[in-house]
Design a protein around this nucleic acid. Structure first.
Lengths: 335, 335
DNA sequence: CTGAAAGCGCTAACAG
DNA sequence: CTGTTAGCGCTTTCAG
């Protein structure tokens, strides 16, 4: 499909192909006269460089492979979106893969990702199969794990501590005088990060208010609004006089809010609700939702920065290999 | 970074590299004995084929480039997710780009996409710059435009008619006796598809109920819950005794629903609300939202099918070059 | 069914 | 600053 090659451009501009190649990569390193000729030739011919050939010759393609559990999840959509924009600005392409929270799937994706000799690979979280870690380490490709810190990264990591998020939610509920609380999570058998938020929550409750009741309730399916309704009902059964809940996701929290409204349970008077994610609707729902913002786009930006500095500079020094983007609790009406 | 090459595998298996290559592509075309040797060599060496080299040699890489306005939009996230899964199953990688609803950005993305000699490129909608169309046509690469039909596609198209969606919403509102209606849209100066839903809505209202009042109201920013609140208020100003609204997106509809609740406006008694998208929360909110489902994953499936059949068979014949995935109105409590 | 040969289009030393 | 020279690792005729 590739009609015009660098050879054609070189011929028309009366220079050698390598000069054209040089011009394309470092325009300043070519004489202005030659540069102009080349530029003209490129535009009259409508030349588009073949990145596949370039990648092969340079032994590293201008591609970064991103693997997330699911792009349908607004959290990751945000990060991927930011990452894509930042990388595109530097001429890097994004190859996308979905692990669906499966380590085996992730491993397969990593394997094909590596087949592209990518400039970097970006993974979600710190939990991976041993084989995945081995493949990645052996490849020598820069890898960034995102959305989680607090373990041993394969190479670099950008994210925040999930147990700390859980603890923040717990402290907030406690500070509002709640003592009969529950954590509502979805898919925690696979979503290790949500599970960590849950255990951080439970630990903090236990540590600070040993006498408080605390339940962790899991919905095996995806984190949806509907799951929120279900979970709230189960929580009320399990914790009599429930007065506070933390949710693993704002969608779940919204579902709980709707269920409260349906059953005439006053929020926050009877039950206080804390979410996670600060999604599109969280500020506008009724009551507005107290939530924890993980800043998915900050993560995206930092990952991009790590990749970019790793590419043109030497790899960044040890100090900056793990970046904590933190989290912010945003207090609204639901507590 | 690529350690083991096909050469190494060939040596260990005591065959020639071309036999290994053949085995990788058509295992059946190689003798069972040789096949076993090769398979063993591959696994003991941990060989991963270099797709960059393969792409160069084969003059077409196993990549399909997908360009959507924004992956943060749940509609496109769904399609991309499905598409990625379907294509990955056939060994194709997805390269992702965001146009942010800009034709120039899209053109730039198409240009780099083409540099990868992709197996196909997937675009959103039928509106593109003339240069984009030219580039794509000249490249000879299969292109699929998705999420819209009703115009002249560059090559293939999968989607539905947006004016018809607007008309469906209008008919539904009319059938509920509403005569003072409005269409609430966001970013319609750039989002041509939303604008078409709006005009389809207005036309149908005019055609069927000439005496009805109908306003089209646009929020220049993104389609968010907050925009929904704003838009509802403007609609009520503009159309006294407003009794029905159609929204360009369920998020906008949710915002309108919240605003009604805040102001004590009964839905659907006073104002009926129709959304678009059938998002996660639409069945669960209060009242549950009547909406139009465009089936983003059906679109993804059909696009994948078109690409896949185009690759191993000859290109599909003229008849099936445009696929209408239709839309479904789902009636719930909000009307 | 298998192997030899000839590149795919570009980059990257290295001389000039 | 520019051109020459070798490949990058794989696919693909084409013989055998």
């Amino acid at each position: 499909m590739q009609r015009v090659t660098m050879m054609d451009v070189a011929k028309l501009a009366q220079v050698s192909p390598s000069t054209v190649s040089l011009y394309l990569r470092k325009p300043a390193a070519v004489s202005p006269a030659a540069g102009q000729e080349i530029a003209r030739a490129i535009s009259t011919l409508g030349y588009v460089p073949n990145l596949v050939a370039g990648g092969l010759a340079a032994a590293s393609s201008k591609v970064v492979s991103i693997i997330v559990p699911s792009i349908r999840n607004a959290f990751f959509a945000e990060t991927v979106s930011t990452l894509q924009s930042e990388l595109a600005a530097e001429g890097l392409q994004v190859i996308l893969g979905h692990s669906e929270y499966g380590e085996d799937q992730e491993e397969a994706l990593v394997r094909t990702a590596l087949a592209w000799a990518p400039a970097a690979v970006v993974l979600t979280g710190l939990s991976h199969s041993p084989e995945t870690r081995k493949l990645l380490r052996a490849s020598g490709v820069p890898v960034v794990e995102m959305w989680e810190i607090g373990g041993e990264p394969i190479d670099m990591a950008v994210g925040f501590s999930h147990p700390q998020v859980g603890a923040s939610a717990a402290r907030h509920l406690l500070s509002k005088g709640r003592r009969r609380v529950a954590f509502l999570g979805a898919r925690m058998q696979e979503d290790h990060r949500a599970a960590k938020r849950a255990s951080g929550f439970a630990e903090e409750i236990g540590r600070t208010a040993g006498t408080a009741s605390c339940a962790i309730i899991n919905h095996p399916g995806a984190a949806t609004v509907e799951a929120g309704s279900l979970l709230l009902n189960r929580a009320m059964q399990q914790v009599p006089n429930l007065d506070g809940i933390a949710c693993s996701n704002d969608l779940v929290a919204l579902g709980a809010l709707f269920e409260c409204q349906r059953q005439g349970i006053a929020v926050p008077d009877k039950i206080a609700v804390v979410g996670f994610g600060d999604l599109n609707f969280s500020a506008s729902c009724i009551p507005s939702l107290t939530t924890i913002r993980p800043s998915g786009d900050l993560i995206g930006k930092e990952v991009a920065r790590l990749i970019l500095t790793g590419i043109d500079g030497g790899r960044p020094a040890g100090a900056s290999r793990v970046i904590d983007t933190g989290h912010v609790l945003i207090e609204r009406r639901s507590t």
